[in-house]
Simulated assay, not measured.
Amino acid sequence: MPVALTLAALAAGYLLGRTRPWDHLDTWVWRRIAFGGTWTQSRWQTYLTFAVHTVVRPRKTWNAWRHRHDAPKERPAPPLVRNLTTPNADDDVETT
């Protein structure tokens, strides 16, 4: 009997590892939060999504809750890109 239970536990672990239900649940929650759409129009669906997010990603949920009123981070200005097809105004170009 212990051998059968061990084999059943190994088979169940193998199947869970192959199907990755936790990863699929995480992807489902991410799609609901990122894209929303018609699925999260009602309040109970939104609550369900956030409850599952809390279960799947507790650390990210706690971090988002702690920083929900923070000012957005400052981003550096984008680099300036020179147009190489036209001459620069500072170059010595003869216009005759």
Rank of each mutant, 00 (worst) to 15 (best):
M1D: 07
V3H: 11
V3G: 10
A4C: 02
A4L: 13
T6G: 13
T6W: 04
L7Y: 09
A9V: 15
A9E: 09
A9I: 15
L10S: 13
A12M: 07
A12T: 15
G13K: 04
G13R: 08
G13I: 02
Y14R: 05
Y14V: 13
L16R: 05
R18P: 01
R18S: 10
T19M: 08
T19P: 00
T19I: 14
T19E: 02
R20V: 04
R20C: 03
R20F: 00
P21I: 05
P21T: 05
P21E: 04
W22C: 05
H24S: 11
L25N: 03
D26W: 08
T27S: 15
W28I: 02
W28F: 09
W30D: 13
I33A: 04
F35A: 11
F35S: 09
F35P: 00
F35D: 10
T38Q: 02
W39I: 07
W39H: 07
T40E: 04
Q41M: 10
Q41E: 13
Q41F: 02
S42A: 12
R43I: 08
R43N: 10
Q45Y: 02
T46Y: 01
Y47Q: 15
T49H: 07
F50Y: 14
A51K: 05
A51N: 06
A51G: 06
V52E: 08
V52P: 03
H53D: 06
H53G: 07
H53A: 15
T54E: 02
V56G: 00
R57N: 14
R57W: 10
P58N: 02
R59L: 09
R59Y: 14
K60R: 14
N63E: 13
A64V: 00
A64S: 11
W65F: 14
R66H: 06
R66M: 07
H67E: 02
H67K: 10
H67N: 13
R68I: 13
H69A: 06
D70Q: 07
E74S: 09
E74V: 09
E74M: 05
E74F: 07
